[in-house]
Simulated assay, not measured.
Amino acid sequence: MHPVRPHAKHAKHLLLTALFSAILSACGGGNDEASPPPPMPDVPADPTLADCFGLTAGTAYTMTDPDGGSTAGKVLVVNETFDGTARNGLVEFAGATDTRSAVTYWSPESNGIRFWGELDYDETGTAQTKVVHSAEFLLPLTLQVGQSTVLKYTDTSQQLTGAQAGQTDTQALAQQWTFQAFDTVTLGGKTFTNTCRMQVIDAMSSEDGPTTLWFAKGFGVIHVRHTNSAGQVVEESTLNAVTAQP
């Protein structure tokens, strides 16, 4: 990310103006009625990792069935309380119903993409498990295309319902995240520019293959592909329709 330095730019502009005035003075002056120079064209800002992970509450879309079925699953971006604080999250629903199946919370912070945790729901839409990630589950903003990082963190899982309600368990985890590319993709009739293609693999086991995810600004995950250790695609889901975009 390139910092904006308005005072430095203004100083440079004044320096150029003074230089230009000196040249005109040496040439005997200038034409007071001369047309002002045309405005400089806007230069698009470089895409950033943080852009891809920003979520816009109210955005909604559907994803194809990862098992190849015909029922698309609903997805909604929310801002709601998780672990005592309002967080942006990505809610997945059971197929085309309004019954929640899972929600994952994350946000771009000053030093990285912070993954906060998730809630899993039973078939009735009742939250049954809460998972809170430790502070180490932080994807650094300094990660560049082509680079990898290993995130070592701890999950604390709490049972919310049933006979084991209140029981907690902890688990140490490690994932390798690789920032593969900025991609422009067209899905569901919409073109998404500069999506972040991330490859994630369990750094503690070689049994499973990597998962590739495409993150789009405002939307979250719009394409996900799971492969086995042999590189074969075992599950894949893509955005196939945008239903709400604030």
Rank of each mutant, 00 (worst) to 15 (best):
G73N: 07
L19S: 15
N111Q: 10
T168A: 05
R5T: 08
S148P: 07
G54N: 12
R225C: 08
F215Y: 10
T170N: 07
N79W: 01
T211I: 15
E92I: 02
D42K: 06
W116Y: 13
P108K: 04
F192T: 05
A22H: 11
V145F: 02
D65K: 12
F179A: 07
P108A: 09
I23G: 00
G95M: 11
V132L: 05
E136D: 15
D51G: 05
D155A: 09
Q245R: 08
V234C: 07
S25Q: 14
G218I: 10
A45W: 02
L76A: 04
T126L: 13
E80R: 06
G28R: 13
W177F: 15
E236K: 12
G188H: 08
D169N: 15
A244L: 02
V185D: 02
D65T: 12
T17P: 01
G117P: 03
P210A: 11
T64N: 15
P47W: 03
T156F: 00
F93W: 01
V103F: 07
T178W: 01
F20W: 07
T62Y: 01
P6C: 04
Y121G: 14
L119G: 00
G162M: 04
Y105H: 13
S205D: 11
G73P: 03
A26S: 07
F182D: 05
G188S: 09
E109M: 01
R5G: 05
L119V: 04
H223R: 12
T104E: 08
S237D: 06
L55K: 05
A18F: 08
G28C: 14
F53E: 00
T149P: 02
T129D: 14
F93S: 05
A45E: 14
N240Q: 14
D67G: 12
Q176M: 07
D65F: 09
A203D: 14
W116A: 15
L151Q: 07
L55A: 06
T168F: 04
L19K: 14
R87W: 02
Y153G: 06
L55R: 04
K130T: 12
A203L: 10
A34G: 02
I201D: 05
T238C: 05
A86C: 02
V4T: 12
G209I: 12
M198R: 00
F219C: 10
T227W: 01
A174G: 14
T126W: 03
V234E: 11
E207H: 09
E236H: 13
S134F: 04
